[in-house]
């Protein structure tokens, strides 16, 4: 129950000002919305109660923030009195900034929500949609239960692992229940028919699991008290929804039952701490590797910091990952024709008659001259 212990915001709660039946300042006679998600559950005799609603609009909303994204399974609300004749169930995926309907419950689908009643023989469309179901029935004890399963609006056969549409359908950060029309009042546009009424409920449950996209097996409270996934597979974020900074050798993907889709670390031979993903390289590699190392250190260069930058050459006696794997060419300022040596052998380009790895000696049959332009001349 993702709603357990979470704060519920009710647009109307009785007791302010106090009446004989309800006094918000007296714990024995208060009926706060917190009762809906407290641990007391159905065993608790206390109910949340709205203010008396003498005239339309009779909408009362109950909003519960789940703290992070969850994958819903069901939502239920147990009423203490006769359940409303019309209820809208909404969800938010962006912490309450926008809302989309999950389902409607009404004896007046067209009148209250402009919708046709849900077809009894299944969904018409290929994807999940918010349908209008019959209003919850009053129970013999005078209460009633509103119950919604995410399967109720979803075509059979969709698999959560393979259906992004279904993944989107079940994802919610907040749940809102709009009690639209009280029971018994019929068409509330008829002012003559209206009598003071209040909604009353005892338990709100939001069945679901912490959404971690398959990359965590548990959720934890962070230092700010926020619920977050304990991410693995090289992922991070509240929902493990992205790869960690250095783990971008291939695109982030949701894990499935068959494949973890681990975010892979870039291959930088221990010479870089950052990398970026390049989709074109990823495609060219046959969808195997798209990471490009950034800021190669230790005089290395290349996509994987796998060769030496200009002016340096590979020391064959050291491993590629060694911080001294690349040695400076050290070409002689007079004997060499340039400063860049062969990156593999370290051989500098020598002027005529000059020899040596760094071009620092005259070749056999040559001797040093006084000219820095032609430092070695043939021995007479």
């Amino acid at each position: 129950n993702a709603a357990l212990g979470r704060e519920v915001l009710a647009s109307s709660t009785c007791g302010r000002p106090a009446t004989r039946a309800c006094d918000a300042s007296d714990p024995r006679r208060a009926h706060p919305a917190a009762l809906l998600t407290s641990a007391g559950g159905p065993a608790s005799p206390l109910c949340w109660r709205s203010d008396l609603l003498p005239r339309a609009p009779l909408n009362v909303t109950l909003t519960v923030s789940l703290g992070k994204a969850f994958e819903l399974v069901f939502v239920s609300l147990r009423f203490c009195s006769a359940p409303p004749a019309s209820v809208a169930l909404l969800k938010s995926q962006d912490h309450g900034r926008s809302w989309t309907p999950l389902a409607f419950f009404s004896s007046y689908c067209g009148l209250d929500y402009g919708r046709l009643p849900a077809p009894v023989d299944g969904l018409a469309g290929p994807g999940p949609e918010a349908l209008c179901f019959p209003a919850p029935q009053a129970q013999p004890d005078g209460g009633g239960l509103l119950a919604f399963s995410v399967q109720d609006g979803s075509p059979p056969g969709l698999d959560l692992d393979s259906s992004p549409v279904l993944q989107d359908w079940v994802t919610a950060t907040d749940i809102r229940i709009v009690l639209t029309r009280p029971a018994m009042l019929g068409d509330t546009r008829d002012a003559e028919a209206m009598v003071p009424y209040s909604y009353s409920a005892m338990e709100l449950q939001v069945g679901g699991r912490c959404k971690c996209n398959g990359h965590a097996s548990r959720c934890l409270l962070d230092t700010q008290g926020q619920l977050i996934c304990d991410c693995r597979h090289g992922t991070e974020g509240p929902d493990c929804g992205r790869c960690k900074p250095f783990y971008c050798d291939r695109p982030w993907q949701r894990a499935t039952a068959r494949e973890a889709h681990t975010c892979l670390a870039c291959s930088c031979n221990s010479h870089a701490r950052r990398c970026r993903f390049n989709m074109e390289l990823y495609r060219l590699s046959g969808r195997r590797s798209g990471g490009v190392c950034l800021n190669c250190r230790h005089n290395t260069a290349g996509r994987h910091c796998h060769y030496c930058r200009e002016g340096f050459y590979r020391d064959p006696g050291r491993a590629l990952s060694d911080r001294h794997a690349c040695r400076a060419c050290d070409c002689h300022p007079v004997g060499a024709a340039g400063k860049t040596c062969n990156q593999t052998t370290g051989q500098c380009p020598c002027k005529d008659g000059v020899t040596g790895l760094t071009c620092n000696r005259c070749a056999s049959g040559f001797q040093q001259s006084r000219s820095p332009v032609a430092p070695c001349v043939k021995t007479p």
């Binding site: 002689h332 300022p333 007079v334 004997g335 000059v354 020899t355 040596g356 620092n360 000696r361 005259c362 070749a363 056999s364 040559f366 040093q368 006084r370 000219s371 820095p372 332009v373 430092p375 070695c376």
Partner: peptide, 23 residues
């Protein structure tokens, strides 16, 4: 035969001052 390394002190930089390396 191992030749001696080039002796920088032997070079005459008179006409090549702009090429002279910093030591």
């Amino acid at each position: 035969e191992v030749m001696p390394t080039l002796d920088m002190a032997l070079f005459d930089w008179t006409d090549y001052e702009d090429l002279k390396p910093e030591v």
